[in-house]
């Protein structure tokens, strides 16, 4: 049995690991010349926050997302499990109350407890929510670690190859092209996201911090070497292009409100990309002959790709055991 995966973003790499570990011969085709070069996963936050996400997502995200907290530490190093901290400026206390109403599995903490968790935020907030069980990772390191793991498993990644999934001669094809698959998935749309990478040595955080605001909620995710990812806008548009001035102002204002030292930080990178989403903002596996399309991960690439990969692997085995008529002819030819 041979399976070809098109796309080496988080969806494709995680699915490849799942299949290869179950003994399937897998190869990956990627149009970019290096891991992450053309993948929207490269702009991700890397929060493994199934319960926080419940604030704006359906229960399904929490249920399927919980698997990520097990899957990632099992497969790569560097996954932090320090929880998520949610805070709001004093005047936006109602936002914190609303967040608490919509989510679960958190503790309410006061200013002193916030200071104990994140000493640099001491005295800045009176109240917060602490989601102890959540985690985070550095998406770029994670993708590279998966690629290395696939090397160990003998899975080749062929870069610089633009392939049409329908035309690939394998027993099954996983289409993990993200928004590029728009022309084959009528109800897929793009949701633009913009992020900044800041560097400062004046603040240190041990976990992602979400700052609630009625208009511009944002999160700051700490990474190694004094880097902080600040994200992310959610705009109903498939425009790529650079980060707009307005979005940069919003993100910077938010970071500054979290800690004034971010005002002195170096802007290391700005990036905009397009999240592929279905109308219900939930990912799914769509079967199209021998092609299984894994798509619609929306803002939950790292959170939901393990669950989606599991579903895709089950569909691959199911498909190969019960091929439809056209496939059966091909398989026996």
């Amino acid at each position: 049995m041979r399976v070809t995966i098109v796309g080496a973003g988080v969806a494709g790499l995680v699915a490849a690991v799942e299949l290869a570990e179950r003994g399937v011969a897998v190869e990956i085709l990627e149009r970019g010349l290096a891991i992450g070069e053309r993948a929207c996963s490269w702009a991700a936050g890397g929060m493994l926050a199934p319960w926080c996400e419940r604030e704006s997502a359906e229960q399904d995200v929490a249920v399927r997302g919980e698997a990520a907290l097990v899957w990632w530490p099992k497969h790569i190093g560097g996954v932090e499990q320090n929880g998520t901290l949610v805070v709001a400026p004093r005047r936006d206390a109602a936002e914190l109350a609303r967040f608490a109403q919509r989510t679960e599995r958190f503790e309410r903490i006061d200013g002193a407890e916030i200071g104990a968790l994140e000493p640099d935020l001491e005295g800045r907030f009176d109240a917060g929510l602490f989601f102890r069980e959540e985690g985070h990772l550095d998406p770029r390191r994670a993708l590279q670690a998966l690629a290395a793991r696939l090397g160990e498993l003998g899975v080749p990644i062929r870069f610089g190859v633009t392939a049409n999934p329908e035309e690939i001669d394998s027993d099954a094809v996983l289409d993990c092209r993200g928004f590029v698959a728009r022309r084959d998935l009528d109800d897929l749309r793009g949701v633009r996201g913009e992020m900044l990478l800041l560097r400062t040595s004046e603040v240190s955080l041990s976990r992602p911090v979400r700052l609630l605001h009625p208009r511009i909620p944002l999160y700051v995710v700490p990474r190694a070497d004094g880097l902080f990812m600040v994200g992310a806008t959610m705009i109903e548009s498939a425009a790529r292009g650079g980060v707009t001035a307005r979005s940069a102002v919003d993100l910077l204002n938010g970071a500054y409100a979290l800690h004034p030292a971010f005002g002195e930080a170096e802007i290391v990178e700005t990036r905009a990309d397009v999240r592929p989403a279905f109308p219900d903002n939930l990912p799914r596996v769509v079967r199209d002959g021998r092609v299984l399309r894994l798509n619609g991960l929306y803002r939950h690439g790292f959170l939901l790709s393990p669950a989606l990969a599991g579903e895709a692997a089950a569909a691959v085995f199911d498909m190969l055991e019960t091929p439809d008529e056209a496939d059966r002819q091909r398989l026996t030819a």
Partner: peptide, 16 residues
């Protein structure tokens, strides 16, 4: 203003 960016790319949402 907020949802379009460049107009054509926002079309899927406008269709919805």
């Amino acid at each position: 203003r907020r949802e379009s960016g460049r107009l054509r790319e926002g079309q899927d949402f406008w269709t919805l």
